[in-house]
Amino acid sequence: MKALIIKRLLILIPMLLVVSLMVSLLMSLAPGDPVSQFEMMPDVDAEYLQRLRQEFGLDQPWYMQYFHWLGQVLPFSYHPDAASFWQRFDFRPNFGFSYYYRTEVWDLLVQRMPATILLSLTSLVLAWVIAIPLGVLAAIYKDSIFDRISQMLAYAALSIPEFFLALLALVFAAKTGWFPIGGFTSVEHDFLSPWGRFLDIAHHLLLPTIVLGIGGVAGVMRIMRANFLDNIRSEYVVTARAKGLAEGAVMFRHVFRNAINPLITAAGFAFSSILSGALLVEIVMNYPGIGQLVYNALLQQDAFVVQASVLMSVIMLMIGNLLADIALAMNDPRIRYD
């Protein structure tokens, strides 16, 4: 297990290097730079823009910019003239400075990452909590009315574009006024009690979670049903029944634990589509996560923010897959990673 974790984290290093190199190249291919939007303004003189470009290093070729960025990014820097001993060490990665938001990219990420991680996790949990019982019931009562209807609903849920669903949710929120339109917290969040803060965040999180979770429910349900059906037909079920085991014990102690294994692997893969879906939901529902950040940064050609957000999405995906593998090993003692 330890070997697996170390190996995965080591793979992450070359992966991040290649991804960051690619994003740098792509961002440099785009015509114009963050400064060029000021060229249109009549009261900004060209000399000032030239100085800005020099200051940001935008006049250098892209690979020089990339190596400059790479040289600074490592999450450790030493400040010998800081006041106290501990302040001399800085463990924050230096992702550069955002041209558009006028702040450190790292600070932006620290603000936005928790919102996206929270949204992804809640919708994953929602999908599992609803889909697993439904999938099991659909498999046990195969070909019943319930099975047919849930299969049809699953098709429908899989086929609705996330941004369309998000739009519908927005209309719903605007019409009823039951839910806030966008945001992660309300204005008075800081003045609330801890319990009030929790409820406030939950209130803002509910609609995006449902929108993002619905596609997941359908996917998980279909996999669960198929796996359960596979396992119901296997011989150990016949053995267990022949031993005189109660039907509930056969289903839940034997079939269920076998059927859930592929689902854990699938959860690792699903994480990729959840992050993609979260990006759309965040943009449409104005939820301040990392997806909204990367979209706005792209429109503003804020290269460092795009760079850092894409890297963060890769890290989140890798860690999601790693956690899925660990969970798989915990559920299935046959799996060994050494």
Partner: peptide
Amino acid sequence: EFLMAIPGLYLLLALRGAFA
């Protein structure tokens, strides 16, 4: 593996960012 390591829409946006 590299292409699959980046969440689809992030890759899509990054690629789209390279064009006018």
